[in-house]
Amino acid sequence: MRQLESVLQVGGDTDIAMIGALVADPGRCRILLALDDGRALPASHLAAEAGVSPATASSHLGKLTEAGLLAVEARGRHRYYHLAGPAVAHLIEALQQLAPAAPIRSLRQESRARALREARTCYDHLAGRLGVELMSAMIERGHLSGGDGTFDLARAHHDQPTGYGHDVDYTLTESGEALLTGFGLHLPICRRPVRYCVDWSEQRHHLAGALGRGLLGRFTQADWIRRTDTTRAVRLTDIGRQSLHDLFGVDLTSP
């Protein structure tokens, strides 16, 4: 009996079907997408985002939390939910890459889709056109070395069309360190401060890791970008557009 209990505790192969069943529900998918920008949101907000009743949202949140996809924290009388970690965010990005595009039936949906592709958050860093143009500009100005920011599936060894990249070892150069210091951004000491993701909408590299997280926080603090209330899209302010051009060489005026 003890031997059987020991075998049962070890477990078998991974249960992909369990995760598949969780993301098969449209309401739960909308909840995961709403949290993919790294924020913690209350159940009432997530119910409205998913278009379901508070009771249904509570059931969805319980299942996602029990499965380890979400974590919950208490703030006074309210409970706030957030993604359990970056691995969940990359799961969402991977599913977006594989899933067909949802049909656009209104001008509002078209505007929302365009905004997400232009500039959005990918968990704790910038993605979309803004994210890849920022990384490209830093490479062109010699602030990053090691790669050219492009993704070619035919030449990729470990990289996929979305998610964390592993093929290229990007390094922050001396000029890059001077740029960040002048900008008031001091990176924590870690093994790999510069990481990258393959952007699912642009199919190029955008910054992740400590550098990507630090830049998102600094841009938000400086009011260069502003988060939206209901989606992962971020809006570039006028001062942000000009400052990104002057300091980082980012030009979003061309198509």
Score class of each variant (00 low, 15 high):
I104V: 15
D15Q: 14
E140Y: 11
L126G: 05
C197F: 01
K63N: 05
I16M: 09
I225H: 07
G76R: 11
A115K: 05
D223K: 12
Q203F: 04
D148R: 12
A74D: 11
E5C: 10
M1S: 15
D238F: 06
W200E: 07
P100N: 03
I139T: 08
L179R: 02
L98Q: 13
R112Y: 10
L32Q: 02
L252Y: 07
A222C: 12
I19F: 13
E66H: 12
I19T: 12
G163K: 01
I104A: 12
G149R: 00
G38F: 08
G182V: 09
R112S: 14
V52G: 04
A89C: 03
L187R: 00
A48T: 04
R192V: 09
G214W: 05
L215V: 03
Q203G: 02
H82M: 08
P86S: 11
G147T: 10
I225K: 08
A113L: 11
R141C: 02
R141V: 07
G147P: 07
R204W: 04
G51I: 08
A113M: 09
H206P: 00
S106P: 13
D238S: 13
G163I: 03
G209A: 09
S44C: 02
P26T: 05
D37R: 04
L4P: 00
L216P: 03
G27Q: 03
R77W: 09
G212Q: 02
H245M: 10
A47F: 05
V194Y: 01
I189K: 11
T173G: 04
A24K: 05
L70N: 06
V72A: 15
T121C: 14
A233R: 07
R117H: 09
I225Y: 06
D124Y: 15
P255Y: 12
A89N: 06
D229P: 04
L98N: 11
M135W: 04
L153R: 14
R2A: 13
M1L: 14
A50L: 05
H60T: 05
S175C: 02
I239H: 08
L211M: 09
A50M: 04
H45V: 06
V198L: 01
P42R: 04
G68P: 09
A48I: 00
T173R: 04
H90N: 14
V198E: 01
D148K: 11
R30A: 12
D13N: 07
M1R: 15
V23H: 01
A89L: 01
L187M: 12
